[in-house]
């Protein structure tokens, strides 16, 4: 075996172990939740309340994640702002997306008798520059690996855990 061939094998080996170590074992969490209603819309002032409910599995990640909302199916790109009343959490809607940190401090926790959290309900306030209809997807994002969400809505199967409704 030539040195070149041997080096190539070592290189593939190193890349393979790097892939194994960097594997995103955090498979996107899938939900057993009601999908968002069709054609959610803001009121005439462009305002809406987006309720996000995190299940127990999703709650395990809140300390290390950011909440990202992605709006789709709008006629025009959405712009505006999003905030959580009562705490200093707000974000700017730009490019049909908004991301906020520290959201879990606003969790309205439902707990079991032993105090273990069951779900966290967040009522996010949305104010757009103009009225719009859209679909919305929520995801919990690992700040250090934004391409791969801890959890998101809109998929079905076993596990967790983000439910979104627009009111």
């Amino acid at each position: 075996m030539t040195r070149r061939a041997q080096a190539l094998r070592w290189l593939v080996l190193a890349f393979g172990f790097a892939t194994l170590c960097a594997t995103s074992a955090t498979q996107p969490a899938r939900i057993d939740a009601t999908p968002p209603p069709n054609e959610p819309a803001t009121d005439e002032q462009g305002r809406a309340t987006i309720r996000v409910i995190l299940s127990p599995t999703a709650l395990e990640t809140v300390d290390q994640s950011e909440l990202r909302l992605t709006f789709t199916d709008a006629e025009e790109p959405l712009e505006g702002r999003l905030w959580l009343p009562g705490i200093d959490v707000h974000g700017t809607v730009r490019g049909n997306q908004v991301q906020v940190t520290g959201y879990h401090r606003a969790c309205d926790l439902e707990t079991e008798e032993d105090g273990r959290p069951l779900t966290c309900t967040l009522d996010l306030q949305l104010a757009l520059s103009r009225p719009a209809t859209f679909q919305v997807e929520a995801a919990l994002i690992d700040a250090s690996n934004p391409g791969f969400p801890f959890a998101r809505n809109g998929e079905f199967g076993a596990g967790a855990n983000v439910q979104v409704t627009v009111r």
Binding site: F15, G16, T19, S24, G147, F148, R152
Partner: peptide, 15 residues
């Protein structure tokens, strides 16, 4: 190996 790497860091983002 290529599928694994590309899939983990790109395709999975599509859900």
């Amino acid at each position: 190996l290529a599928l694994w790497a590309v899939n983990d860091h790109w395709l999975k983002t599509f859900g």
